[in-house]
């Protein structure tokens, strides 16, 4: 039986994912990745406001076995940790937890941990513990992928400018994108910033 180069642990997380599903009354949710890449996850977090412990975390996935396994392992590593601790979950921890990933699938672990970080930052912003500034928006944009390059849109140099004025956020994408790609990216950007009570425009 083939396993596409996956370890037993990856296959186990893939077949019996930990924490799959959604939390209807989540304190924060975030979607990272791109459907066009076939690599997308959505995380749901329930956080204790006093202790800042992640009491529950669930995920949904549109992705390959590595995507599902990475996100499953990430939720396991994050659950029960404080936000500060959980922020430190590195993609290498996830790869290690899985007993390794094929080289060309390591980006799946990166997507999962960057999703976790984005969710935590978003939670902090919601609670007023973090100001929504250009830097914050830029960090959120790193969860949006450019399907043509397989990189996040910041690394792929697709974001020309980010402007933040109070609750108004303006993201200017590079000129050389075709309409279809631009529309999909805009959609992904909006969904990356939902739940923050912001007025987002993408150009």
């Amino acid at each position: 039986m083939s396993n596409l180069g996956y370890t037993e642990k990856v296959l186990d997380h893939f077949r019996n994912p930990r924490n799959p599903g959604r939390i209807e009354d989540a304190d924060v949710t975030t979607k990272v990745g791109s459907a066009a890449c076939g690599d997308m996850v959505q995380l749901y977090l329930k956080v204790n406001p006093d202790t800042e412990v992640i009491e529950d975390i669930k995920f949904e996935s549109f992705g390959c076995a590595a995507n599902i396994a990475s996100t499953s392992a990430t939720t396991e590593l994050a659950k029960g940790k404080t936000l500060e601790e959980a922020k430190k979950v590195h993609f290498k921890d996830v790869v290690e937890e899985l007993g390794g990933l094929p080289k060309h699938k390591v980006h799946c672990a990166m997507l999962a941990t960057s999703g976790l970080k984005a969710a935590i930052m978003k939670y902090e912003a919601k609670r007023g513990k973090r100001t929504v500034d250009e830097d914050f928006v830029k960090r959120m944009m790193t969860g949006v992928l450019d399907p043509a390059k397989g990189l996040n849109i910041v690394a792929a140099k697709r974001v020309d400018r980010i402007e933040v004025e109070g609750k108004k956020v303006r993201v200017v994408l590079s000129k050389d994108l075709d309409d279809d790609t631009r529309a999909t990216m805009a959609e992904d950007i909006l969904s990356a910033l939902t739940g923050l009570d912001l007025e987002v425009s993408v150009e």
């Binding site: 077949r15 076939g38 060309h104 699938k105 043509a148 397989g150």
Partner: peptide, 27 residues
């Protein structure tokens, strides 16, 4: 996603194929 479908079916002893290939380089 196709690879996830394929692997799950493979675990049932069913060999199929998919037009999806997820890699870090690009879609």
């Amino acid at each position: 996603e196709g690879e996830a479908l394929l692997l799950r079916l493979d675990a049932e002893g069913i060999a199929v194929s998919t037009g999806s290939a997820c890699s870090s380089k690009k879609t």
